[in-house]
Simulated scan of single mutants.
Amino acid sequence: MSETKDVLLVGFGAIGAVVGFVLQRIGKARVTVVARSNYEALKVDGLTFRSTRYEEHVGWRPHRLCSSIKDAADQPYHYVIVTAKAVPEVQRTPELLAPLLAPSYAEKYPQPVYCLLQNGLNVEVDLYNALKALSPSEEPKIISSAVYIASRLSAPNAAEHSDVGDRLGIGMYRPIHNVLTNSPEEEATLTQFASLFGSNVKIDIAADIQRVKFIKNIWNSVFGPIATLSRYTLNTIFRPAGDTRLEHGGVAQSSLLSNIPYSYPPIRDYTLPFVYETLSEVIHLGNVRFPPDADGKPALDPNLAKQTLEFTAGIFSLPTSSERPSILVDCETGRPMEVEVIVGEVVRMGRALNVPMPRMETFYSLLLVVQMQLLHAKGRN
Rank of each mutant, 00 (worst) to 15 (best):
P266R: 05
V10M: 12
P273I: 08
P112T: 12
R36T: 11
L127N: 05
K132F: 07
P266L: 13
I26T: 08
S322A: 13
P140S: 13
N220R: 05
A313I: 02
L375I: 07
Y128E: 08
R245Y: 15
P319M: 03
R380H: 04
V201A: 00
L153N: 01
S365H: 04
G250Y: 10
F214G: 00
C66M: 11
L97W: 11
P62L: 10
D269G: 06
A377H: 09
D163C: 00
V80W: 06
A206M: 09
A299V: 04
Y105L: 06
L300V: 02
V34Y: 10
L127V: 13
N129R: 12
R92S: 02
A377C: 03
R231K: 12
T312P: 13
N287S: 05
I260E: 09
Q373W: 12
R231Q: 10
S230C: 03
G249L: 04
Y54A: 00
N287D: 06
I69P: 10
I315G: 05
D293H: 07
D6Q: 15
E185N: 10
T333K: 08
I267A: 14
D163Y: 09
L366V: 08
G13W: 05
L374C: 14
W60G: 00
R61Y: 13
E277C: 01
D74A: 03
T271A: 14
I143R: 12
V201M: 00
R53M: 01
R245Q: 07
M360W: 03
G165Q: 02
L353S: 15
M1E: 01
P103Y: 06
Y276R: 01
S254L: 14
S263C: 04
T236S: 14
V31K: 06
L234H: 03
V339H: 08
A313G: 15
V343C: 14
G16T: 09
T48P: 01
I260H: 09
E323Y: 09
Y39S: 13
Y105Q: 08
G242Q: 09
I237G: 15
A299F: 06
R64G: 01
V34C: 09
K306G: 10
A377K: 07
L100F: 10
W219K: 14
Y262F: 15
M349F: 11
I142N: 09
S221F: 11
E361W: 10
G120K: 10
Q210S: 11
P266Y: 12
V82L: 06
C331N: 07
F363D: 01
F223M: 14
T308G: 11
P273V: 03
E95K: 11
V369K: 10
P273D: 08
N354G: 07
D166P: 06
A133W: 08
F238Q: 04
A377Q: 05
A84Q: 11
V19R: 00
N381V: 15
T236M: 15
L96V: 15
A188T: 06
Q192S: 07
R348A: 09
H248A: 08
I142E: 15
D301H: 03
F290D: 01
S258L: 08
G350P: 02
I81R: 13
P103E: 03
M172R: 08
R359G: 00
A159R: 00
P358A: 08
I342N: 11
V251Q: 15
S151K: 04
A352W: 12
S326R: 12
S280W: 05
S162R: 04
A294G: 12
T308Y: 12
